Simulated scan of single mutants.
Amino acid sequence: MSNAAVTAAASSRATAAGKSALARLGEAFVGRLVILIPYLWLVFFFLIPFVIVFKISLSQTAIAIPPYTPVLGFGDGLAGFFAQLNELSIDNYTWLTQDALYVNAYVTSVIVAAISTVLTLLVGYPIAYGMARAPAMLRPTLLMLVILPFWTSFLIRVYAWIGILKPEGLLNQLLLATGVISQPLIILNTYTAIFIGIVYSYLPFMVLPLYSSLEKMDYSLIEAAKDLGCPPTSAFWKITFPLSLPGVIAGCLLVFIPAVGEFVIPDLLGGSQTLMIGKTLWNEFFANRDWPVSSAVAVILLLLLIVPIMLFQRAQARAQEQDR
C-alpha cells in the first residue's frame, strides 16, 4: 500500500473518530437537556413561587398594596438586605398553632380527604378491573368514557351536582316518585355532598393508574392459582391486589393530595358550615386580606403533603434496593 493510501486511510479513521466523538457529545448534551428541562420547570413554577410565599409568611400585615411589609428586598443593597433579616418573624406560624380554627381546618381536611380517597378507591377499583378484563376492542372506548368528564368544565360539573342533590333536585324527585322516601333528603350543604363531589370529580385520577397496573398483569397467574385450588377471593387478595399496589398507591396520592386543599367542592356543595383548609386559605387571602397568615397556612399545607410523600418514596426506594 502506498504512502498516499495509508495517509488517506488514517485521515478517514480520524474523521470517523472525530464524528463519533461529536456524536457522543451531542447525545450527552441532549440527554442532559432532557433531564434539565423538568428541573427548570420545577424551579420556575414550584421553587420560586414557594420561596415568594414563604417570604411573605415571615412578614407582617400592613395597610398597603400589597398588604404586607416588604421583607428580604435588594432595593437598599446588601446592607439593607442583611438589616431586614432581623425583621423576619415567625409570629404567623405561632398564631396558627394558637388558633383552634386552623388546627381544626387542617385535621378536618385530612380526614375528609382520607375518607374520600378510600371511597374513590372502592368505586374505582372495580371499574379499572372491569376495564382491564374487558375485550381488547372495548378497552379504548371504556378508557375514553373515563376521560370524557374532563371535556367539561370542572366548575360546571360541580354545579350540576347542586341540581342533583338539592331538596327539590333530581335525586329527591326520583326517590319521592318511586316511594323510597316520604320527604326530601337533606344532602346538599353537608359533608356527604362533599364526599360525593370529590369521589365523582377525582374518580378518573384513581381509575387510570389502576387500569395501567391491572392491564399489565399476567392473568395466567390467576388461572394457575385456580388450578391449584385457590378460591377466587383468595386469589384476588394474594395475587391481583398485591400486583396492582403501584396503581393503588399512585391513584390514592393523586386523589388525596388535591382533595386536602380542595376549595370549590366544599364551598359549593358543603356550604358555609363546612371547615376545610382550602376555604380557610381563601378567606384569609380575599376576605381578611391577611396575606402573611394565609401564606403561612399555604406553607404548612404544602409541607403537610410533601413530607409524607418524600418519606414514602424513600422507604419505597429502600425496599426496591433490598429486593435487588
Rank of each mutant, 00 (worst) to 15 (best):
I164L: 13
F236R: 08
I198R: 02
K55T: 15
P246T: 03
L208H: 08
L96W: 06
L311S: 02
P292F: 02
T7N: 11
S234D: 04
V297C: 08
A250W: 03
L268I: 14
Q273D: 11
K216Q: 14
L22H: 06
S182N: 13
A105W: 03
G18D: 11
L145Q: 01
A296G: 12
G77H: 11
L72G: 13
T7A: 15
E284K: 06
S295E: 07
L47N: 05
L47T: 11
I257C: 08
G179L: 03
F46T: 13
F46Q: 13
L101K: 12
M310H: 00
A225D: 02
F312R: 00
R32M: 14
P70D: 11
A177P: 01
F195A: 03
W41D: 04
I277P: 07
I52Y: 15
C252P: 02
L47H: 08
P149I: 06
F205V: 07
L142V: 00
W41S: 10
F81E: 04
G75P: 10
T152P: 01
G179S: 06
L269E: 04
L143H: 03
D218H: 03
K238Y: 01
M276Q: 09
A235E: 00
R157Y: 05
I239W: 02
L245Q: 12
P126T: 08
L302E: 04
N189P: 05
A177V: 01
Q320L: 14
A105D: 09
Y39L: 15
M144S: 12
A315T: 02
R324D: 07
E168P: 01
A5E: 13
L78Y: 14
L85W: 11
A21C: 00
K279N: 15
V43I: 15
I239D: 01
I249A: 15
R289P: 06
N172M: 06
T15V: 03
S153G: 13
I265W: 08
A8K: 12
A9M: 11
T280L: 14
I277M: 11
R324W: 08
A10G: 05
I181A: 06
F74Q: 04
V51Y: 14
S116M: 01
W151D: 04
G278C: 04
I306L: 15
I181S: 07
L203Y: 07
V71Q: 13
M206P: 01
A21P: 00
V110W: 09
T117E: 12
D323E: 13
I156F: 08
V299F: 07
L174D: 00
I249N: 07
F263Q: 09
P70Q: 05
P70M: 04
E223N: 11
L88C: 11
F195T: 03
D218R: 06
V110R: 00
L303S: 02
G163T: 06
V264N: 13
C230L: 10
Q98E: 15
N189L: 00
M144R: 02
P246S: 09
L165F: 09
I265A: 08
V293A: 10
E168F: 05
Y159N: 05
C230M: 09
L78S: 06
V180K: 00
D267E: 11
V43D: 01
A100K: 10
L174M: 14
F256T: 10
L210H: 09
A160V: 05
A287V: 13
G26K: 10
V180W: 14
T69D: 05
T108R: 10
S212G: 02
A10S: 12
D227E: 10
A193Y: 05
F46L: 15
F205M: 12
N92F: 03
V260L: 09
